[in-house]
Write a protein that binds this DNA or RNA. Structure first.
Lengths: 346, 346
DNA sequence: CTGAAAGCGCTTACAG
DNA sequence: CTGAAAGCGCTTACAG
């Protein structure tokens, strides 16, 4: 049916081996032969069969990209296309394809990863999230399959190659930044604590409080489960504390705006009554009111480097374990305000 | 090295054919034999090789998903994760995997699609965009490869299975809606005219003007190239016309907000001085100021049905050509205002 | 620089 | 209900 290597070999008066070597542009074939064979390929409209090559060569030229759907729903909305774009850039440069996970919940994802590895669907895997006690991670670690992660792993940190933002430091610096603006009472609206990113940011928030001698109060901390705080109540409670916060750190721009809207109903103005700083720098955040002070986390770079690391691992049998924090930028806009008159902002 | 069907056959005292049939759960094998073979599979930790199965069976159990990177940059940001989620849902249900395109520009995408088809990497393809004079589309059409599109095709509309919103009608209805609010001078900020979605919305805008006897002016129309209008100038020009518009339709929420910000600098208030209605209902649009009146285009559904249609095509040799418009919802919020006092909005 | 041969790990008519 | 055999379309030591 389809044109095969055999047909090309026959037409070009060479052996199938030679055709195969022309396909992979082996230096062991003369330019003359290559030209001849390539002409026949063109004439016959021959195209190497992907599956057959992979089966014979015992590789797939494909990387698996695993995303956590629960997060992709909202908080990761802007994250997802950008990180994929980063991975694509690297994959394309390496002539690799991307196989995307389709699972809906944690169990399905786990099964899918197992199947990718055991059925040899992919040569390597990128995990686009880092969760606490993640069976998928444990599995990959145990079978010693090439993989990298976007996000600091909860366990085995020294043994896993990953790329991340330094979320603890960023949160720490955010507190410091607010303190410099004169704030002493800083609330924190964090994400789902199943994710390491949430834990890290919370930790940074806490340790800054210790180092800077701020009074740390549990009442200043709100944990949102998925996308939005949704809990108007917790915001109301926060505002009605005896000593209400004058600043707030939100773990995502969309959460920040939802909070701002709730605050509005409570007649609290941002930044005049409450400063807000957030994470992720959504595309919209520059244009809406108030323009949000937020941390740009270089999502494209996260994807790109996670893929680059993966290619290193796949190419060398014993590539060293690496990890790197991608730099971030605090984008100062108008949702934060200085309490000390002389350094007025916004 | 790896455990193969041969090993399992030997251990279970059956032929490789039988093992193969157990893998695919063929009804021609007795339950007793199945149990026996499965036990051996478990004991040996056997997993069928994906590539080998595909090569022998001449299929891939994989669909290719092609996205246009130029758009994914911005306007499609919220679009991308949702449409993928829809496709995933269908793919997962059909036990198929997803292969994502990695190309950066139109030429690379074209090459990649050719390679997917000719090298038999995938069984079918979903095009996540519809462009004018798209070589990729022409190619798929000519080789008669199973594919569906999210977006009305520019050519061969009767011969291609696609799913879309009825963009002409939506734009038409949007004009009508604004007219009902008392607006007579309605501007339109559309997208890149290489995309059919932009053409369709513009057409709907125009035909509504004809049907409703509105004075249609070229000066009321702005075409943005990629993500953002970026052209403060064109907004300024619009506002300073002899008869400035009292309402504006933007092709994406993020564009709407960028416009709103520009208007602010010109001391034009939304919705008091200018009503704005937009497309796509971003997650943030409910929470920012002013909350945007926008059209929810059911992105998940678009992805889901595009995939479902594709599976129909792949399963039946001659599945009928289908097309369907997914329903949309106008979300009325506070960026539009009635000019007639008695139906005050916002 | 090129070829003959074995092999990658499955599926599927065909036969019984 | 099960098996023997051919085949899917390549790659890659090995040999020369």
């Amino acid at each position: 049916m389809a044109v095969t290597i055999i047909d090309v070999a026959r037409e070009a008066n060479v052996s199938p081996s030679t055709v195969s070597r022309v396909i992979s542009d082996s230096p062991r074939i003369s330019e003359k032969t290559k030209r001849k064979v390539r002409q026949v390929m063109d004439r016959l409209n021959y195209h190497p069969n992907f599956q057959a090559r992979n089966l014979a060569a015992k590789r797939t030229r494909t990387i698996g990209v695993i995303m956590s759907h629960s997060t992709s729903l909202a908080f990761q909305n802007p994250f997802f296309p950008e990180v994929i774009r980063g991975i694509c850039t690297s994959a394309h440069a390496n002539q690799y394809g991307m196989y995307l996970s389709t699972g809906g919940n944690e169990k399905e994802i786990y099964q899918e990863v197992k199947s990718m590895v055991q059925s040899k669907k992919v040569d390597g895997i990128i995990l686009l999230y880092s969760k606490v006690n993640d069976p998928t991670l444990t599995f990959l670690k145990e079978v010693d399959f090439p993989f990298t992660m976007v996000g600091r792993p909860y366990q085995y940190e020294e043994e896993i190659t990953y790329i991340d933002n330094d979320n603890r430091k960023i949160a720490y610096e955010l507190v410091k930044y607010l303190v410099q603006l004169g704030h002493q009472h800083i609330a924190f609206v964090g994400g789902n604590l199943d994710y390491v990113v949430s834990l890290d940011r919370l930790e940074g928030y806490k340790s800054a409080h210790i180092d800077l001698n701020l009074t740390y109060k549990e009442e200043y901390i709100i944990h949102t489960q998925n996308q939005s705080p949704n809990d108007f109540d917790s915001i109301r409670t926060l505002i009605h504390l005896d000593v209400p916060p004058t600043a707030l750190i939100a773990h995502d721009d969309s959460v920040a705006y939802e909070i701002i809207r709730h605050l509005e109903e409570l007649s609290i103005r941002v930044p005049d009554d409450l400063s807000i700083v957030s994470f992720n720098n959504h595309a919209l955040s520059a244009f809406v009111k108030p323009p949000l002070t937020t941390v740009d986390i270089s999502i494209f770079q996260l994807g790109l480097e996670a893929a680059n690391y993966l290619f290193e691992k796949m190419n060398r049998t014993q590539a060293p374990i690496k990890s790197r924090f991608v730099s971030t930028t605090l984008i100062e806009r108008q949702s934060t305000k200085s309490l000390t008159k002389d350094t007025m902002k916004g």
